[in-house]
Amino acid sequence: MKPEPTREGDGRRPGPGRRGPEGRGRGDASGEEIDRTSPAIEVNDLTVAYREQPVLWDVDVAFRHGALTAIVGPNGAGKTTLIQTILGLVRPAAGRIRILGQPVREGRRSVAYVPQRGSVDWDFPTSVLDVVVMGTYGRLGWFRRPGRREREAALEALAKVGMEAFAERQIRQLSGGQQQRVFLARALVQEAPIYLMDEPFQGVDARTERAIVEVLSDLRARGDTVIAVHHALQTVPEYFDDVVLLNVRRIASGPVPQVFTEENLRTCYGGRVPFLHAVAGPPGAGSPAPGAGSPVPGPGSSASSSGAAPSPRPGASARPADGSA
């Protein structure tokens, strides 16, 4: 019995102190009430470089509490790097990151991470349930083994993604979509107020996509914050509240109706020569827009409805994961 979250109503701008019915007392790291007026995650002047090549350059983003935010951008735009830097997996060259007002080392305990499923060896000798139980390792502490409580929490999380029947399966036997749902369940077990997901919809079957969408709307109903790297532009307005357009620089960020415009998308996908391969010229556009400030008329007029959303890369979801991480 989950209340259907309203997209235009209070779901968009949650007042201070608002939490979902199940939202009370969760989150092992932050016992005190979260200040919901300040951003869940705040990134200032972030620059990340591999060798001399900048991957993220002077990026400022604030992620709203209780919102589902998509990070979109072409391959090599630094989307995965942004997520991994927030988690402390990548060391930035410069910049400041605050998670619930805390620096990364403390703040990341409030974050549940869903990595790209290709990031691990699925031939590892372990079961589905074991993988999900790993989500409890952070709060277990040293020398304590996961027990019955942890296994029950894991089973519950598996049920939320429709995988409870697979608990005892070897992970080698899972399909790609099932792998993704197992990773999602592992993150749910963490009971964290913030979720960072790296391409959760990448190459999954329709059933998995439905399951993930359902989990996302549950999380929003509870007042949790979700940030996901996303490739399929056509589903951004349907699935997400906010969007960050990223291409090494932050092109734009904010609520989907205002930010997810044709002009911004052209700037994001078309303006950068080294990534020309990512550009399948949008219909009607003679050449890719040269950069910011391109005179595309009617910002906001065509972008808010999903049907009219421009999709410069029709095959976006079928592309391989971006190689930046």
Partner: peptide, 22 residues
């Protein structure tokens, strides 16, 4: 035996382990 779960997670998914704060 004492560090079993840490060794296991390090072998399976070290990035996730670090994201957990371990």
């Amino acid at each position: 035996v004492l560090f079993w779960k840490e060794f296991k997670l390090l072998s399976f998914d070290p990035d996730y382990a670090r994201a957990l704060g371990l």
